[in-house]
Amino acid sequence: MIVLEFKAYPNQHQASAIQEAIRTAQFIRNKCLRYWMDNKGVSKYDLSKLSTVLAKEFPFVKELNSQARQASSERTWSAILRFYANCKLKVAGKKGYPKFRKNARSVEYKTSGWKLSDTRKHITFTDKKGIGRLKLKGGYDLHFYDIDQIKRVRIVRRADGYYVQFCVRVERTEAIEPSGNAIGLDVGLKEFYTDSNGNAEPNPRFYRLGEERMKFKQRRVSRKKKGSANRSKAINQLARQHLKISRQRKDHAVKLARCVVQSNDLIAYEDLRVRNLAKNHCLAKSINDVGWYQFRTWLERYGKVFGKVTVAVNPAYTSQNCSSCGTTVKKSLSTRTHACQCGCTLDRDRNAAINILNRALSTVGHTGTNASGDLASIWIGENLSKQAGSMKEESSRL
């Protein structure tokens, strides 16, 4: 499944209709969540039936396409299942109990309620919300895909306008020549990562660079009268600044992950619990700014696309142990050089990257975890050389 995003250009009436559709989807979600809270043994089909009952009870719900109503109830059920999964796996900390939405930003249609034009440059929403025909602008060509392959269509509201996303059911794979390289990555705050070959990627620090501008925008918001049009404009400008930084961080993670995966046949990295690391109030801003979550996510995604092996290993003592003899050399965070009695003297981060690679070469990594590391599982004791015969088969499991 891939997601293709296009910028939409609604007029004022269409923008109001989109907002009404988003509020209706939010209303259905909150009603489904309340129904689940008040009744035991509620299933996915019960929530789907509830969306039909709501359509009969409220005229504004009936105006939304029937499959869009079902999609809203299904998204509620996905949040409930995620909560159940976290409880079953005994995830540390909060389990992600579903919450009521008060400022939703998207509405999702399934295979009905919309129609693409012959040129694939416009989309028309055919339900009774009155959204109508929207112009699409983007760098993708929808002519490459059949209409039957488009399983979901979302309208997303952001600070700089509205976007239409197409969820296309297609298997994305790209064949490239094996490089014969294996690499270990040690992420950090001083450098974005240091690999086992000694190469370091600088940390861009996008939030730090834009922090002064952010503070300026925030001061403008605080000076405006609450409820005024000027305050709304100032809030939108602040949101645009946040959006710019998040896009910079994502673009950096995507491009860097693609280069790393294309250049190596095996990529080893730390199975970090980013959520727990961010609890350190002295480092929380820097940890959230560096974007380890997105980088690891895209490493795993491109690993599947290019048929490469990505391995997450336990980060314990990778900085303390000597990569040459295995002796534990205690050092504080301020000590940036690893010096062992065996004569091995390396940069602290490169020593950790080599240890990460060595662990990966003797283990098989996780399957399909998120970058916070909360659901990661390490299979110890299975030699990676057993997997060398079928790199593609291994990558499909990751």
Rank of each mutant, 00 (worst) to 15 (best):
E5W: 00
Q14C: 12
A15V: 03
R23L: 04
R29E: 02
Y35E: 08
M37V: 02
L50C: 01
L64N: 08
Q67L: 12
F83I: 05
N86P: 06
N86Q: 00
C87M: 12
K88D: 11
A92E: 13
F100C: 05
R105G: 13
K110E: 13
G113F: 03
W114R: 03
W114D: 04
F125Q: 06
D141L: 07
K151D: 11
A159R: 04
V164S: 02
C167W: 06
T173R: 15
I183R: 13
I183H: 07
V187A: 14
E191I: 01
R208N: 06
L209H: 11
E212N: 14
S222V: 04
S228P: 09
N230F: 04
Q237A: 14
A239S: 14
R240E: 08
R240H: 00
K250T: 13
R258I: 01
N264Y: 09
Y269C: 03
D271Y: 01
D271I: 00
L272V: 12
N276A: 13
K285A: 13
K304P: 01
F306K: 03
G307W: 10
V311K: 03
P315K: 00
A316Q: 10
A316D: 13
S319D: 08
N321F: 01
G326T: 08
T328R: 15
T337K: 15
A339Q: 14
C340Y: 04
D347C: 02
A353T: 08
N358F: 01
T363S: 15
V364T: 14
G368C: 09
D374M: 10
K386R: 09
Q387A: 15
Q387C: 10
A388H: 00
